[in-house]
């Protein structure tokens, strides 16, 4: 995914703003990465270079940290992030069929974003709601006892929400 010049510029400004709050102690690297990702949704190369300079470490080390942890993304996510819990209880109660249902409905694979950047699909480690298995987290909201048919319903409700905000916006 190629980033536009505009996206790069925003990323740079935001990263610099965040870095101002932290001293050069390397222990601050992960909190900074988290804040940049919270703001931008991902961590682009320009941000990595900026952090490397701030903490006085090689850029490849920032890249090493970024690619080590599940949480960080190198490319922009979808507006709605669908996360399928892959905990034991969810797995034994059919998380893989739920995953396949999402993949079928969104026509993307896990780790991908739909072309309109509306949805991205991810697998997450156990979210700790084992008693409600299988679980899907959409944005921050946890949905329990999901079935393949409920996937359609969930998707529909998010699309409906979007339509309503759109209509609300034009009024």
């Amino acid at each position: 995914m190629k980033l536009t010049e505009e996206e790069k510029k925003t990323a740079l400004i935001i990263t610099r703003q965040i870095l101002k709050e932290f001293n050069g102690n390397r222990g601050n690297l992960i909190p900074v990465l988290q804040q940049v990702q919270n703001k931008l949704g991902y961590v682009p190369p320009v941000a990595m270079e900026e952090m490397a300079a701030h903490f006085d470490i090689p850029a490849v080390d920032v890249y090493g940290v970024l690619t080590f942890y599940n949480q960080f993304r190198l490319t922009p996510p979808g507006k709605n992030q669908v996360k399928i819990c892959m905990g034991t209880a969810c797995h034994m109660r059919g998380a893989h069929t739920i995953q396949e249902a999402w993949e079928r409905r969104l026509n993307i694979k896990v780790g991908e974003t739909t072309e309109d950047r509306e949805f991205s699909l991810e697998r997450v480690a156990c979210v700790g709601c084992c008693t409600m298995a299988p679980v899907v987290v959409i944005n921050e909201q946890v949905h329990g006892k999901v079935t393949p048919t409920r996937v359609d319903g969930l998707l529909f409700s998010y699309q409906l929400d979007k339509q309503q905000t759109k209509e609300g916006g034009t009024e």
């Binding site: 905990g87 480690a125 156990c126 700790g128 084992c130």
Partner: peptide, 12 residues
């Protein structure tokens, strides 16, 4: 950092 899938005591 309760990471075991299937464990949620620490979270609770």
């Amino acid at each position: 950092d309760e990471g075991d899938p299937g464990a949620f005591m620490d979270r609770t």
